[in-house]
Nucleic acid binder design. Structure first.
Length: 896
RNA sequence: GGGCGGUUAGCUCAGCCGGUUAGAGCGCCUGCCUUACAAGCAGGAGGUCCACAGUUCGAGUCUGUGACCGCCCACCA
């Protein structure tokens, strides 16, 4: 009984067996997030499946052996991948550091107390224990690399590439160091990029404060601000030059309260007469707008906060206070001075740190920037010219929108964990030295008194280089030659800008002139994001995270994978519904049982039977075989089309319909008597069945890799033609195997059988009771039924089919279609009321449709303008409906 | 404030270049434990395609306006 599958379908068992096998055979890598790592508990679906990682491997060209390359080429050709992971990866910088800092805090330590070196050591220890986010990111890409610590030192591996990239950009004048107002997180104590700031609509307060005109005239100007504490750094008040209210103040000075410093009134269009009082305080060190205004008017920049957002020595009496404590005290003091003119509620968007949700403080600091405009220009062109294609296409719009409004990219971070900026500051001449390796002396004065810049690079800088650094850049490698650019990037839109846009910009820049093109990839497929059942974004704080491990445990990986595929219609997110997953588990179960049935019969007929050695030619004499063969190839063609178009939902639905409805419900039922019948015939039938079943498994395997692998191996009795079904040829659908006539004929028979079943249900015939049927039909239909009489009789539970010359329209309960009329012979009286309702409803529906059709057909411009086949189709339809109405009316009249 | 998407059966979603009577799964109702499968089989009910206007011979599909829901981006104090 070598073929017998276990009676019950146990997905868990199958999964562990094949996952282990795949890894052992080095077919695919399976990824599991470590407990305690930043990814743990996140909706990372990557671990589900073997095939999806294949696309990721495209990035890792140089690590592939021959087998892996074969797999890739295969999947690449047929695009039979399905990547449904959620990019639940953290970047290395802030996230990792935060985890470690949290740990330190519990020990009463901090990174400051520990010092840079020891701190990095701690992070390293932590990383070894739990795996770092960067490791996670690399693993998401399917790499099975153990990143050693050299990755993070300057002279080795990827780090060398990062350094090289920085130096080159600097040489090309695309990197500059500048004082700038950046988004500063006082908790992380680092600058963060615009993208790392999340805006949150908040109802705050708008404070109106009076600034007296200098000279003690008693006159004053009222300004409005949401952050009164920044007034300590005020250097001017701006009014709109056209604002009539303030003409008299042009050129005057104001007395800045609390600081007792005179500041000028300047005129600038920045001041909107409509907003607040029309007068705006100017704090160049703590507001990006004011910073620009300050430059225009040559105003000083007074930084009043330290890196933890406490007031510093420039804040006079308030030095040492936290920004919010200072705000309270300042308001109180102003109030006492009678300078607080009012407080109003004010809705605005408050910027918070993406990582720790601390309110971001705009702060003047020295940072490194990339001049983004030239890079963005090229990246826009690449998409405009179609060198990169987005799917769904509308993401290109979003991409353009962003790229055209992009700001220079702040790439420095005041963290201690990451790639350090390859810049050394000279203590002697204060000049900087940018170098590929640790310099012996200052490039300007030769002094050895050098100190490396303390900042590290934004994670997305190194991540953005990934498409070519993994192929050995800056070396010219064979891998880069062959695999750059990769064909496809699959990702979620949430990192379109963080990562995708940067890979494009940096790829186009550094790989310019590459023979196969400078872009890092040809296509970008933006997959849907999985949300919870209420369409909410999953988040830990909301507690609505659907744990993929739980779900897969409950329903099986195959079912979850199939669910995601079937819901992956472009442009919308997936609201994860367990109901559907349940349905697809039932589907897997169905397949399992169909296979069991097949194997049972195989064992019954004993020696000489095979599922995989080809079917006798005479099998094609049977209508049902011609039919199922045609249906299989049609389905295969549609699945391929769906995959090509990234319509995983359509592909999944096609394979589902074929396998369950056509193959199981119809085909298996039709051939059942043969399988259970004489051994010789059963062997022949099984050979044909095996051919179809095996093909259907291959068609299904990208969607349900585990169960198909299990059954497929069993079919070959342990000697499969390939190591994995994923390596077997994917059915493409052969047009020459399509058979329209067989499909039409089978459809007619199915129609007849369904009508008879319908009659039986209505007459309340018990399922086990067979009844005779009468049919009135044209000769060709009659011939078809006679040729397949046994099939019809069995599937319709009919005993004896009698063909009658006269119409059955007057027979109570008869079913009529344009091509046949059928009734059953049964003494039980029909439910006259129900039958009348049914007929009335049917007639009404038909009359409605017929009315529409005839109105159309009576319309000259329809006849003139509509395509002939549409007109013809409607005519035919119309005639059929006319006929059906007459028949139904006759039947209705007969009921009395 | 700018941009993008959605609204179709009780629920979750398809519906392609506008073309006959709008589909699926789940749920619901009826009958069946028919030796592959009750995670199943057979039959059935259920829809003013968000609203209004327009284009068209013809609109779920195209255009406009509005309502509601959601997402992304944004330095207006």
């Amino acid at each position: 009984m070598s073929h017998e599958l276990p009676k019950s379908y146990d997905q868990g068992l199958i999964e562990s067996r094949w996952a282990e096998y795949w890894v052992q055979e080095k077919l695919f890598s399976v990824r599991t997030p470590e407990p305690g790592s930043p990814e743990a508990g996140k909706p990372v679906f990557t671990l589900l499946l073997p095939p999806p990682n294949v696309t990721g491997r495209l990035h890792m060209g140089h690590m592939l052996n021959q087998t892996e390359m074969d797999i890739i080429m295969r999947w690449r050709r047929m695009r039979g991948f399905l990547t449904l992971w959620l990019p639940g990866t953290d970047h290395a910088g802030i996230a990792t550091q935060m985890m470690v800092e949290k740990q330190l805090a519990s020990e009463g330590l901090s990174r400051q107390k520990l010092g840079r070196e020891s701190f990095v050591e701690r992070v390293w220890e932590w990383k070894k224990l739990y795996g770092s986010a960067i490791t996670g990111q690399m693993r998401t890409l399917g790499a099975s690399v153990d990143w050693d610590r050299e990755y993070f030192t300057m002279d080795a591996g990827l780090s060398r590439a990062v350094c090289e990239a920085f130096v080159r950009l600097h040489e090309q004048g695309l990197i500059y160091r500048g004082k700038y107002v950046v988004n500063w997180c006082p908790r992380c104590m680092t600058a963060i990029s615009d993208l790392e700031v999340v805006h949150e609509d908040t109802v705050g307060k708008l404070y109106h404060i009076r600034y007296p005109v200098a000279g003690g005239s008693g006159d004053s100007v009222t300004i409005a601000t949401t952050r009164p504490e920044t007034m300590l750094g005020d250097v001017a008040v701006a009014v709109n030059p056209k604002d009539a209210r303030y003409l008299h103040l042009h050129g005057k000075k104001l007395r800045l309260p609390l600081m007792e410093r005179d500041i000028p009134v300047v005129t600038d269009d920045l001041a909107d007469p409509e907003f607040g009082t029309g007068a705006v305080k100017v704090t160049p060190a703590h507001d990006p707008n004011d910073f620009q205004l300050g430059l225009r008017h040559h105003l000083p920049q007074i930084n009043i906060m330290d890196d933890q957002a406490r007031i510093n020595e420039n804040g006079g009496a308030y030095a040492g206070l936290d920004r919010y404590a200072a705000r309270e005290k300042i308001l109180k003091d102003l109030d006492e001075l009678g300078l607080l003119a009012g407080i109003k509620d004010h809705a605005h968007a408050l910027g918070r740190c993406d990582r720790c949700k601390t309110v971001v403080e705009p702060r003047l600091s020295v940072q490194w920037f990339i001049k983004i405009a030239p890079l963005a220009q090229r990246a826009i062109e690449a998409v405009e010219k179609g060198e990169i294609v987005f799917t769904p296409a509308n993401y290109a719009k979003t991409y353009f929108e962003w790229m055209r409004n992009i700001h220079d990219w702040c790439i420095s971070r005041q963290l201690w964990w990451g790639h350090r900026i390859p810049v050394w500051h000279c203590h002697e001449c204060k000049e900087i030295t940018v170098a590929r390796s640790i310099p012996a002396g200052c490039s300007q004065c030769g002094s050895a008194q050098l100190e490396q810049d303390s900042d590290v690079l934004d994670t997305w800088f190194s991540s953005g280089l990934l498409p070519f650094t993994v192929m050995g850049w800056p070396e010219k490698t064979r891998a880069a030659e062959v695999f750059y650019p990769t064909s496809l990037l699959i990702t979620g839109f949430d990192i379109l800008f963080f990562w995708v846009a940067r890979m494009i910009m940096l790829g186009c820049h550094f790989m310019a002139g590459h023979p196969q093109g400078s872009v890092p990839f040809r296509e970008v497929y933006i997959h849907a994001l999985v949300r919870d059942a209420d369409r909410q974004k999953m988040s830990k704080t909301k507690g609505n995270v659907i744990d993929p491990i739980e779900v897969t445990k409950k329903y099986g990986t195959d079912a979850v994978r199939f669910t995601l595929a079937s819901m992956a219609s472009p442009g919308t997110d997936i609201a994860f519904s367990e109901g559907r997953t349940e349905g697809y588990r039932a589907f897997a179960n169905k397949i399992w049982n169909a296979a069991r049935f097949m194997f049972m019969n195989l064992d019954r007929v004993g020696e000489g039977a095979s599922l995989t050695s080809g079917a006798p030619q005479k099998e094609m004499d049977l209508l049902e075989n011609r039919w199922i063969m045609s249906r299989f190839h049609r389905a295969a063609g549609q699945v391929n089309q769906g995959l090509t178009d990234y319509r995983f939902d359509e592909a999944a639905s096609t394979v589902y319909q074929f396998f369950w409805l056509e193959f199981c419900d119809w085909y298996l039922e039709i051939i059942k008597p043969r399988l259970l019948g004489p051994a010789d015939d059963a062997r022949s039938a099984l050979a044909f069945l095996g051919e179809i079943f095996e093909g259907a498994l291959r068609l299904l395997s990208p969607f349900m890799p585990f169960i198909t692998e299990e059954i497929w191996h069993a079919m070959y009795d342990g000697r499969p033609p390939a190591k994995s079904i994923a390596l077997a040829h994917f059915p493409e659908g052969a047009p020459q195997r399509l058979n329209d006539r067989a499909e039409e004929q089978m459809t007619s028979l199915q129609d007849l059988i369904e009508k008879i079943r319908n009659l039986r249900a209505e007459f309340k015939v018990l399922p086990k009771d067979k009844v005779p049927a009468r049919i009135h039909a044209a000769a060709d239909f009659r011939k078809l039924v006679e040729e397949n009489r046994a099939l019809v009789e069995r599937l319709a539970s009919v005993q004896g089919i009698e063909f009658v010359p006269e119409s059955l329209a007057n027979t109570p309960g008869a079913r009529t279609t344009p091509s046949f009329e059928v009734c059953i012979v049964y003494e039980q009286k029909i439910d006259v009321g129900a039958e009348r309702d049914r007929l009335t409803k049917e007639i009404k529906k038909l009359e409605g449709a017929l009315g529409n059709a005839q109105r159309q057909l009576g319309n000259d411009s329809f006849l003139a303008k509509a395509p002939p086949q549409v007109v013809e189709g409607l005519r035919k339809q119309s005639a059929e409906m006319q006929l059906m109405i007459e028949k139904n009316q006759a039947a209705l009249a007969r009921l009395g």
